[in-house]
Amino acid sequence: MRRLLLAAAALAAMAGAAAAQDYPTKPVTIVVPFSAGGPTDTVTRLVAEPMSKSLGQQIVVQNVAGAGGTLAAGQVARARPDGYTVLMHHIGMSTAPSLYKNLPYDPLKDLQTIGLVTDVPMTIIARKDFPPKTLEELVAYVKENKDKLTYANAGIGAASHLCGLLLMKAIGADVTTVPYQGTGPALTDLVGGQVDFMCDQTTNTTGQIKAGEVKAYAVTTKERLKSLPDLPTADEAGLPGFEVSVWHGLYVPAGTPEPVVQKLNAALQAALKDENVASRFAELGTAPVAAELATPEAHKERLSSQIELWRPIIEAAGVMAK
């Protein structure tokens, strides 16, 4: 036993002392702040496979769900800055400082960006017997009937919540929100006609749209999607400039040595060029970001601008976890 312990300790010491130049010498963990099987988890697992090939080490995906993703982010922010603990997070990284008072970490100071991964588009959808036929009609209808309608979201800080807030701001109405615990139940009630409309990621909505179970009005990206070619963009359908996407990015704890960051970034860049990743992303209704966005600088820029974008919107909506 003693010998075993000694051997184990020696092995661990070797790993710990390994220079950043040799990185990685042991499996790398990517922490996903949401449960397995969700959109973020899927994106992570798809990217992890080719990344592990270029790093020459196994990548372990660990799901640390809780507190809207802040639990995992806090855990990674406090982890050793050696590049073996990596975080995949989405747009929620930029809204957490406005949503959570006393956040135990500062997204800009305690975490180092590696690069953006993908921008998942969102769709504006409604129950199938909802009267408006186009987005323009929807805007008018919502304004007119704002006291009678309800719209769903998947919980505080969820992508659907953020998109809904932005939509309300764009329409200029304040419709009653019905929050749910996750997308599943929200979509159930929308398909069942219990609530009127919502805005959610294509990963969740494409199947329902194609089957005609929900009425789709627009996609929230600049260009139309290959998977839903008939669906206009919000910009062309009556909400000029309305654009929102669930952007995903990779992070390591601040203080991680530069060569390690470089290596992770190179692995990410290679993964985004991988054909399998591209085709799987397309099936999800999304695409890898352009190479110039998959850099630490572009990612940091996106993070800080998004923090500023969301702060006033969230404060105006009066949702804050005290």
Binding site: S35, A36, G37, G38, P39, D41, T42, G182, G184, E283
Partner: peptide
């Protein structure tokens, strides 16, 4: 929900 993830 996990099985949905598997589908995706």
């Amino acid at each position: 929900a996990l099985i949905i993830g598997a589908f995706i």
